[in-house]
Design a protein around this nucleic acid. Sequence first.
DNA 1: AGCTTCGCCTGCTTGC
DNA 2: TGCAAGCAGGCGAAGC
Length: 269
Amino acid sequence: MPELPEVETIVRGLRDPLLGKRVVGARLRRKTLYRRGSLPLRRLIARTVVSVDRVGKNAVLRFEPTAVLLINLGMTGQLELWEAGAQSMGNPKHFHARVRFAGGTELRYFDARRFGHFYVAEACDLEQDLNIGPDPFIATPTHLRRVLYGRTAPIKSLLLDQRVLSGIGNIYADETLFLARIDPRTDGGEVLPNARRVLSSARTILNRAIDHGGSTLRDYRKHDGSKGGFQVHHAVYGREGEGCIRCGRAIHKIMLGGRGTHFCPRCQK
DNA sequence: AGCTTCGCCTGCTTGC
DNA sequence: TGCAAGCAGGCGAAGC
């Protein structure tokens, strides 16, 4: 599942190869992958990439003359950087879009479950149009306290809400709460005194994950087709029944807000 | 408004 | 062995 570390890894890999390149062809075959209000992908033809960044879990490419391409990978989206003459790594069965650049480089999009979204606009206010909050590297404890104040939903569910904090998905929500030693079922409003610890834990986990190129459970791949390495460092996610790395007690798995949630009942209060 | 559930979608896993 | 049901979940919509 491409969360912040996975998208950050992909974006870093795409930045140098794409900066300054001019689009000579672009096509998205499956219309359902467009986010509402998007211009067609071919609108990018004859424009040049001037920046490649990440906002929350989205990859954001900006162009001159003015245009912006926003890609959300959903659950199984893959961005492959393809060079002329190379073998494609993606499954052709799930090939949905390509952007061709002068010189022969292509950006290819694969997505088995098709939960991803493309959004093309002449200009856009990202935070407003995406309706997302700051990511954990940008957010302050004050911001977190403000958005959690009085909330009765479980903190785990609120960490998944991109309007509260952007970039965190199911894996890193569980890992963050383990490091912060907070029970995922705790009411959001009761976490206010620990907002600083939640934020610093999120940053620690996300930074570690980025250092390892993200977590590959099944589908996630970097831009060059290789896998991430952080999955072997998960403390709780996917470790139901195994021993807690801190106290040895079995990790529990419950459903919270419809999501599988992993935690140590002894270490997380 | 806030909280929860559902639907989208495919492929791997589980159970009969 | 084979088939059907179960499960995974990011995100937006719908229901309460």
